[in-house]
Computed example of a mutant assay.
Amino acid sequence: MKLVLMGDLHYHDIDATVAGWREARAAFYETLLGRFLELDADFHISLGDLTNYGTTMELQEVYELLRRKERTFIHVLGNHDLYAQTRREVLAITGGQRYHAIDTDKAMLVFLDSAKEMDYEDWGGSIDGEQLQWFEEMVIASGTKPLLVFAHHPVYKTTARSETDKGSIHPSIDMWRILSRKEGKGIYFNGHTHVDSIVKQNNWVFVQLSACLDQHGFRVVDIAEEEVRITAVDVAEAGVLEHAPTLHKHMKHFTHNPNARGTDTDREVVVPLLTAVQPS
């Protein structure tokens, strides 16, 4: 099984009076998403903040680009996706689900909704009791099968910047009480903090993707019997490199992070699934 993941995309509305902005946006996103879609995989996944403010226009336009090639696309909701309108309105436009699971013979995939609705002051994450109960049931049901979790917000004090104010699912929500119930290996993927980071804690590996506007690229996740291999794919086409500075200059609600790219160990990892048998 193969997955392709993107971090925060922040597809955004533009001010048509700013010369060159429309052209720069079109070149950047058409090139970037073209590369995203040409990568063959079972699922193509956005880890949230697919849009910059969640307006109807942003959602419709980015989905138009994503539908240029027939792929199974899954959109995890991020806080920016829910600024302009309600969760129900956004899901009606996208046809997505708030949270759900896909159980396969290779792994169980769980998609969480950690975004607050229309809360411009607090961009931190939250998960309600009903969803937490469902998540715990999925963790238990996964048994020893690899469990891959996809959310926008990191778990507190895991990946880089997850300890900052509003940088994670709220610390008062005891995610570890649920995560610790996992038998075997779990991998938790998230975005939100706009910096690459991979951290191993207990039997979990936390993989954080930076924003596509800062670090142009994706992650490919290959799930085999013996291991899960996560590799980085960089996008260096002119349509992306030449036009990103224009977007950084004019965008609202987004601040460019020139230090988004981590070291190689922050971007790629191999997670072994089989426990070595100790000699007697």
Rank of each mutant, 00 (worst) to 15 (best):
I223H: 03
G184N: 05
A244R: 08
R177D: 05
K185M: 13
A236Y: 04
L247V: 06
R261C: 08
W134F: 01
F254E: 02
P245V: 08
M6Q: 11
A92W: 05
V228N: 09
H248S: 07
T56M: 09
V228E: 07
Y63E: 07
S197V: 09
L109I: 08
G184D: 04
W123H: 11
T72R: 15
G96I: 05
I127A: 08
W21P: 00
V205A: 15
A236F: 07
Y83M: 12
A41I: 02
V62I: 11
G217C: 14
E23R: 15
G217K: 12
I198Q: 09
E130I: 10
E242M: 10
T263K: 14
T159N: 09
A238F: 01
E64R: 14
Q133G: 00
V240K: 01
N203F: 04
D113S: 04
I140H: 11
H256W: 14
H80I: 13
F150G: 07
H12Y: 10
S180Y: 09
K106G: 00
I102W: 02
L82S: 05
I74C: 07
V149R: 01
V90T: 15
T104I: 13
F206I: 01
W123Y: 08
I187F: 00
W134A: 00
N79D: 10
M138T: 08
L50Y: 08
P171S: 09
I173H: 00
I74R: 11
F206H: 04
L247C: 05
D103E: 15
E30P: 01
F189A: 06
G7A: 11
E227R: 15
L3A: 07
D214M: 02
Y53I: 09
A151T: 10
R35T: 14
T55I: 00
D105M: 07
D222G: 11
V205P: 08
T72S: 14
A260L: 10
H216K: 07
M138W: 09
W204L: 10
S46L: 05
G143N: 04
E70A: 14
L274Y: 02
S142Q: 03
E242Y: 02
W123E: 09
R219V: 00
F206D: 02
D42C: 02
E237Y: 04
L247R: 06
T246W: 05
Y120H: 12
H248E: 07
H192A: 07
Q278T: 13
Q131G: 03
R161Y: 12
E61Y: 01
D119H: 07
D122N: 15
L112G: 07
A211W: 01
E117H: 01
L66V: 04
T193V: 13
A84M: 03
A41T: 03
H250F: 13
M108H: 06
L77Y: 04
H250W: 13
R88Q: 13
T263L: 12
R267T: 12
R267Q: 13
T164Y: 13
C212A: 15
G20T: 13
L9G: 08
G95C: 11
H10D: 08
K2T: 10
I102D: 05
M108N: 04
E130V: 11
F254N: 06
H243G: 01
L241I: 13
D222C: 03
R267A: 11
W176T: 09
S168G: 02
A26I: 07
S280M: 15
